[in-house]
Write a protein that binds this DNA or RNA. Sequence first.
DNA 1: GTCTATACAACGATAGAC
DNA 2: GTCTATCGTTGTATAGAC
Lengths: 187, 187
Amino acid sequence: MSQTTDTRRRLVAAAQELFAARGVGATSPRQVLAASGVGQGSLYHHFPTKHDLTLAAVGATVDDALTSTLRVLAADAPVVERVVAYLERPRDALAGCKVGRLTSDQAVMDDAEVRTVVGLYFTRLVDAVARVVAESGLPVDDARDRAHAAVAVIQGGYVLARATGDPEAMRSAVRGFVTLLRSETAR
Amino acid sequence: MSQTTDTRRRLVAAAQELFAARGVGATSPRQVLAASGVGQGSLYHHFPTKHDLTLAAVGATVDDALTSTLRVLAADAPVVERVVAYLERPRDALAGCKVGRLTSDQAVMDDAEVRTVVGLYFTRLVDAVARVVAESGLPVDDARDRAHAAVAVIQGGYVLARATGDPEAMRSAVRGFVTLLRSETAR
DNA sequence: GTCTATACAACGATAGAC
DNA sequence: GTCTATCGTTGTATAGAC
């Protein structure tokens, strides 16, 4: 593995962490430098502008998140339980969703390319959940509505937990939704 | 009405608009000046620091939002329909929630006083929805879970709509949740 | 209370030596 | 590919006249 590649990775990894903790707009290239331990010249060699660094870091974060979520949804279990497994997955509620938080980050929304990457994450996530729900035999449109609601409960759970400073808010929202989901199935 | 009060109001109104459109961290005192038409000296006379201006503007936005939502929840209708009325309320989904978006705004989360105001908004909102749900006779804990889920669906709906650039994502999430809510009631 | 002018740090980015 | 030094701009805030 070349040194080039290694430096690049350290920069991207440092950017991913800082973006997750403080957002893109509130993170400066200088902070990424300090966190990664590389020099200023190196950063601008690998990533000429902040846009380039942001695209690489957000792209990596989106890939990681999608991969691990799709694995949970593909488990060998009844349809409802696979959706419930997604919903009840352990999460750092107070940290917020690494991807979802970017939708109110002006530095992201002002950058068409990065915004597209964030949009694709949610499109694919909702599609994956909808496919699972549709296995139950529910009409496709209804399955998509359920999928949107499920993903929204998680994203909103993050907002509630962060706003109140209480991770229990996320768990309460999930419990409320799962109860409704199961009560329907049990009918 | 004194000129002092009027200048103050124009500053707060301009700050509210800019904060709603671009967030607190991404809005500078200079932009507030330009939008309000007042001079630099005036701003710093009424609000010595950005913190002071932020607290006033966010406080006003929270008050407005809470007041109008509580009115919807107090309508004269069956319990489930009052919750549905809150859920189906017309919203500018692509703009995001003026309050919810602040939970991923670093300038807000770094300011303990402002953060508290945002937290209280959601605490009160969830409490209000939970009280309505509890009128149905559901145990209090279950009512609170439903309320958290309902508010989360809306907040998550904003995230989905903004991420995908499609307001239909919010409507789909709401439809999915309302269907589950009504199916339970109809049992 | 409001104005103009200014201070000082941090921002994103570039220059040019090695 | 990486370094140190520096650029021009904007951020938040202050000074002092009116």
